[in-house]
Design a binder for these strands. Structure first.
Lengths: 255, 255
DNA sequence: GTAGTTAGCCAATGAGATTGACTTGAAATG
DNA sequence: CATTTCAAGTCAATCTCATTGGCTAACTAC
């Protein structure tokens, strides 16, 4: 967990922790160094341990030193989110000849990204960061929607709908992952049990299907939702095409 | 909701806060009294003020007294969520002859409920509470899906997908509402501005459509998502019906 | 080298959750 | 009625955090 850490601060010779050291050499810290430590801590110890105290320990500095680089914790978190995103989406998306595949890929990227950092998923979903990577993603998805055959108004709408659904589903799934395992398993187990012993007179449907109901956190849900959306987009584009051709035939000069 | 409650605390005559009072009379507190106070505090002062200290002040008790009724804060929040839900969904849903309308209604209920208590929306979405109201909702939606013509496996899957999408979208929308207004408006404004000045060479689609793009928190998004889902369910049911009749024709006695 | 500035450090504050010991009043028991 | 019991309030104390203001060392520019 901290074996290769010695090197990181090794220019403070041998006494990183010892009584001899008074303070870190100037400019040891920086936004980048802190953000990278922050990622490590979040990944390793979870959100509860994500405190200035433990971040400071990770970089061998005093907790309050971090304030020289970030106004407060909220700012640190937002910048971390940007940073993580920039790294995750580093390899930019390349359009293929299938808009479906493209949208699916982009959805999968987001989903994976959120699940990789579940601690911050809620913030990731709710707050815009308006950085280059975001523009690139929007451009990519918008292009795919237009290639699917949507008109501009529909594309704008479906971009938002699709994006919000992807992000919010991912965020919720991540949110459940971020619960401590005890709580999560408790919820899941209790849920399954209770649904099996529901009174059949009151809830006949549930009783009849209790064996087939899915967990709230079932991973299949996300993929199904995505496919369902893609189908919907395709159908919508089809409609639009029909509308266009019909209009051309029946009312060639509509105004 | 709390009209006849006044009595509960009024038997502490006149000196509720005065120096004369030593402690609250026995059994002044109870889960219900505390939960109702909790709702008031959350609605009035927001999530940041949702502390044992302020809850205690609201009921005129010592902060640690609350521990006699709730193991810890997490438990209190979960029970509050249940309580709110029970009250919001009080009037149970009645099936109509349109499964579409039924699903739409049930989606709207959830959406409104989450927006009414945005402070807890994240928890509401991620954690199961397995109470009667939940069963009733599930039964209702499941019934609607089967009436739509889905087979059981599909119904189980779409129940989860639809539910999760509704809940997660609502939760995300609520999450943005729960941000303090400054932050929220800042995000929104900056977003709009930046998207209008995006370089057209790099992001031609965005540049061409920048005027039409929707806000991330646009309320139309939810309704559109719901309709889109309903269409998808209908299409899926249609497929299933076709598949069934085809099978009947081509392989009338399949085993 | 000398002055100035920056960035790390320290002590302290104040909020909050949570615990354990203490107390009191009402109900049960004799 | 006196006594015991015990749940339900209360208090003091602890621990963990974020955050602030003042201090000072180390690097920079002159």
């Amino acid at each position: 967990m901290n074996a290769p850490k010695a090197e990181d601060t090794s220019d403070v010779p041998a006494k990183s922790t010892g009584p001899g050291r008074r303070r870190l050499p100037r400019d040891t810290l920086s936004r980048q160094v802190i953000l990278e430590a922050a990622e490590r801590v979040a990944a390793r110890d979870g959100l509860d341990a994500f405190t200035f105290q433990s971040l400071a320990k990770e970089v061998n500095a005093h907790p309050t030193s971090l304030y020289r680089h970030f106004r407060d914790k909220d700012q640190l978190v937002l910048e971390l989110i940007d940073d993580l995103r920039a790294r995750s989406y580093g390899g930019l998306l390349k359009p293929t000849d299938s808009w479906r595949e493209d949208l699916r890929t982009s959805a999968r990227y987001i989903h994976e990204h959120y699940l990789r950092y579940p601690q911050f998923a809620v913030q990731m979903a709710a707050r815009t960061t308006r950085r280059p990577t975001e523009f690139a993603n929007v451009e990519f998805a918008l292009d795919a929607l237009l290639r699917a055959g949507l008109d501009e108004a529909d594309a704008a709408m479906y971009l938002r709908v699709f994006g919000n659904v992807i992000r919010s589903l991912s965020s919720m799934e991540a949110g459940m992952l971020a619960l401590d395992p005890e709580t999560r398993d408790g919820d899941t187990l209790a849920w399954q049990l209770e649904y099996r012993r529901v009174p059949a007179e009151q809830y006949p449907r549930i009783a009849a299907m209790s064996g087939q109901l899915l967990d709230i956190g079932d991973p299949k849900v996300f993929d199904t939702a995505v496919d369902l959306f893609l189908d919907a987009i395709e159908a919508r584009a089809e409609q639009a095409r029909n509308r266009r051709s019909t209009r051309q035939e029946s009312t060639p000069k509509e105004r």
